[in-house]
Nucleic acid binder design. Structure first.
Lengths: 137, 137
DNA sequence: TCTTGAACCTCTAGTCACTAGAGCAATTAG
DNA sequence: CTAATTGCTCTAGTGACTAGAGGTTCAAGA
């Protein structure tokens, strides 16, 4: 039996966040002590590790809820779980591509500023004038 | 003189978002028609394009407010503008690095699932078990 | 056994950058 | 002149937490 603080230390998830996950239905309401404090079993520790891991991978609370729903039915085809992971992968790749364009452009903007005052600052001119951009966005 | 809809079409920023920017102090309160509708001058169109561009680059509303503050004083050194751009670049690079780790891991997870049912689904096992990860996160 | 201080409880509100909707008023095209 | 479109303000919702108030419980030392 772990207190919320134990769980927090073991998983690196802050206590208010654990309560939030419970509220969002990712964790089941745990047992309580006589004084109404949460007492978690090992299964909950493992589930929280799962949630933490999935969040680190960028899955939304909703996706995680779906995965938890799936894992309750070990006999069902795993195509859904696979689909969720693939969707997540696609979205991550998309975000990377967008950020790389930004990187390129910010690089140009931030390294080309040779002006002494704001009046001739390349940063500000580049932000004002889209035509200075290397590409569309 | 542009209506809010004109401005929206010209900059690709939705009308409610334009009002929001005004409320946040990024745009000055524009003139109004007799019937209390916003009428924007060309300067506001340009400033909105600036804001749009900066938002596309991932700058926060706060950073943009700072830049707008700077650009009002064309005689001040542009080191601040430069710093804001550099900070932004660093944060973008950071995000890219993190996402690339995720990509790697999701790739492994999503392409290795050969199980037929959730019970032996690699996706779910990998999410539960951090030790299956290729690296720390 | 008592006491102290840390950890815990619930509840509300705040964050960011919008977005959606209700319920009206003004403008514009035919 | 009328109908359709566009605009107005205001409130509330989003996601995933985080912070704070104001109170209760627990565990360890004296």
């Amino acid at each position: 039996m772990y207190s919320i603080g134990d769980l927090s230390r073991r998983t690196g998830v802050k206590a208010p966040t654990i309560r939030y996950y419970e509220q969002m239905g990712l964790l089941e309401a745990p047992e309580r002590s006589e004084g109404n404090q949460r007492r978690f079993a090992k299964a909950e520790l493992e589930r929280l590790a799962f949630i933490r891991h999935a969040r680190d991978l960028g899955l939304t609370i909703n996706s995680i809820r779906q995965l938890i729903g799936l894992s309750g039915h070990a006999d069902r085809p795993c195509a859904d779980a696979d689909r969720i992971a693939k969707e997540q992968l696609a979205s991550v790749r998309d975000r990377i591509a967008k950020l790389q364009k930004l990187e390129e452009e910010l690089e140009r903007i931030a390294t080309c500023c040779t002006g002494e005052t704001v009046g001739d600052c390349y940063v500000i001119r580049a932000l004002s004038d889209h035509s200075l951009c290397g590409h569309e966005h």
